[in-house]
Design a protein around this nucleic acid. Structure first.
Lengths: 193, 193
DNA sequence: CGAAAATTTGACATGACTCAACTGGAGTGG
DNA sequence: CCACTCCAGTTGAGTCATGTCAAATTTTCG
């Protein structure tokens, strides 16, 4: 697949000159992953920032009881990764794994630092991306404190219908902070309500 | 109080030239608030980005049952506000209120846009601040899914001992996503455990 | 077709909430 | 400096939302 969706995504937010586009292009690589493959594995230091060209991935944490907790699901035009460890270049405590065959645009940590130097616009670009991600994250916290599990499920469905179709229910349940069994019961009740 | 802590905070992260410092200074104002006063009120559009010079504030949401949910507590050297509404310059759905008499450094929305233009370093500066805030927020989500209320309380105590001393228990309880009654019981149990 | 993965179902357990009453400071004003 | 109120914190009884565990069923896919 081509890089077009990636550049479209960027240019929708920040117009780039041809030379900037060329510089950026020179720092990108595209990598394909098979369903089930890990992009980031707990304990390894993530070297790349990942943009999803195609496919679908989950980011999750394994707690001390061995349970999986999904913190993020990414599809086309989203970023995926363990941002904290990437930024500090330390060992990941999260995992990122493909739920489908996927293609990612990857930017190496050092190249990204270079890009910030060479194309200050990108600094702004990522500032805005992260700001929005932060606001969304804070909202998610408030939702989890304010709403019941069923309400959160309905809201998710409303907001991300595309994702609900694509990911296994247990992933969605985990993302919503509930067990797969309970989500199953919620869905069942909704049908007869 | 002087602006020194504010500039210290910035320069710890991004060295500024004298002229940059002067430009920045020209866009700042300091405002004092009394305990109980609102800095941002649900329904009003927040015009300023707020840095806490002194004091302590809570950011909270009132749900449809009239219950208060604290999303954030800020003390010296933290930022406070309803970031989402500030960024979009739309009506706040959060409130920011002082828990103590407080002094804030405020930057007007439009001045901030100008500062990004004039001092590209600030773009980086805020990108990094928000990145860290985002990572912290994601962690908070995982904690709330992974840990029990008592564990979250202990972890908070460990991480922010300064804040526990200063805020009323019901604020802390709300921040942790539990009721004040339950936090009271947790504390009680911890004493005899 | 068969095995593995995902989902469902039911009985039971529990963490956390609700509500209401009570306690104990911390102002405040007379 | 007392009386009063107000706000924060505590306590207890009862309840509810969600979790646990284990088994049954369905779907997916090699």
């Amino acid at each position: 697949m081509s890089l077009k969706p990636f550049f479209d995504y960027i240019k929708d937010r920040t117009p780039l000159t041809d030379s900037e586009e060329a510089i950026l292009l020179s720092k990108l690589r595209v990598k394909k992953y098979r369903k089930g493959e890990f992009v980031v594995r707990n304990g390894e230091t993530p070297r790349y920032k990942n943009f999803v060209l195609s496919g679908c991935l989950k980011t999750f944490y394994i707690d001390d009881k061995g349970r999986e907790h999904v913190s993020m699901v990414a599809i086309e035009n989203w970023w995926a990764g363990d941002l904290g460890s990437f930024l500090r270049q330390t060992k990941a405590h999260l995992n990122v794994q493909c739920l489908e065959d996927s293609e990612l645009v990857q930017i190496h940590y050092h190249d990204l630092q270079q890009l910030y130097q060479d194309i200050p616009k990108l600094e702004r670009f990522f500032r805005i991306i992260v700001q929005n991600a932060f606001v969304a994250s804070e909202n998610r916290i408030l939702n989890s404190f304010t709403l019941t599990a069923a309400e959160r499920y309905l809201q998710f469905r409303e907001k991300y219908p595309a994702i609900e179709q694509r990911v296994p229910q247990y992933v969605l349940a985990s993302y919503l902070g509930i067990t797969k069994e309970f989500l199953s019961k919620i869905r069942n009740q909704l049908i007869f309500a």
